[in-house]
Amino acid sequence: MLELRLVQGSLLKKVLDAIKDLVTDANFDCSESGFSLQAMDSSHVALVALLLRSDGFEHYRCDRNLSMGMNLTNMSKMLKCAGNDDIITIKADDGGDSVTFMFESPSQDKVSDFEMKLMDIDSEHLGIPETEYHAIVKMPSAEFARICRDLSTIGDTVVISVSKDGVKFSTSGDIGSANVVCRQNNSVDNKDNETVIEMNEPVSLTFALRYLNSFTKATTLSNTVTLSMSKELPVVVEYKIAEIGHIRFYLAPKIED
């Protein structure tokens, strides 16, 4: 028996909006510690890892570990039927072949339930080691989204370079080239507006912009984003989900031959 009650149901709606274009089908894993997902895109270049910790739910009952295969397009269709202020409860029986999403309006005068069929999904689970990254950049998520969007009008790939001077995003294409440099700044008024660079050694990596643009669909989940980079390792693009968890995207770098 599984019953997860999320008061801020809009978070789940936003999570689905953030990942449904990257991943078609995925297994949601439910355990004592939380509700999680790890899935790769069809080309296995990008991976999304979601964690919603159990203590972030108003009510969290998970009698035994459960993996539920869901089509994210269909799940998104159902969650779109929830109001932004609705409380969402996810319910499933052990060994059942469906999951139920229950939506309650804040004033409790409207209750809906949507049942969705589950599916069997064979997916590879990757072991992602805890790593000390060479450079970690924290910046406003809207700024990162803007840079990715702007640069993708010029080129297909971006070089992200972190040095003591700041973080530089560079691209080039048929019509020309572009560089955007963000320097470390400290905002007294609002920590969300800060760009903070922690660097052990300079790092420069090249990525396909279309994946980064896809990741920025998570911008609505958090005012800040963190980019963690090490030489010749996938970048981690992390959006914290208020008080409850995170969504992390991993993207393999393009490597010079």
Partner: peptide
């Protein structure tokens, strides 16, 4: 002159 590896090249399959 770039090649794109899959994530399995970096992280072990469990």
């Amino acid at each position: 002159p770039f090649r794109q590896e899959g994530l399995e090249q970096f992280f072990p399959i469990q």
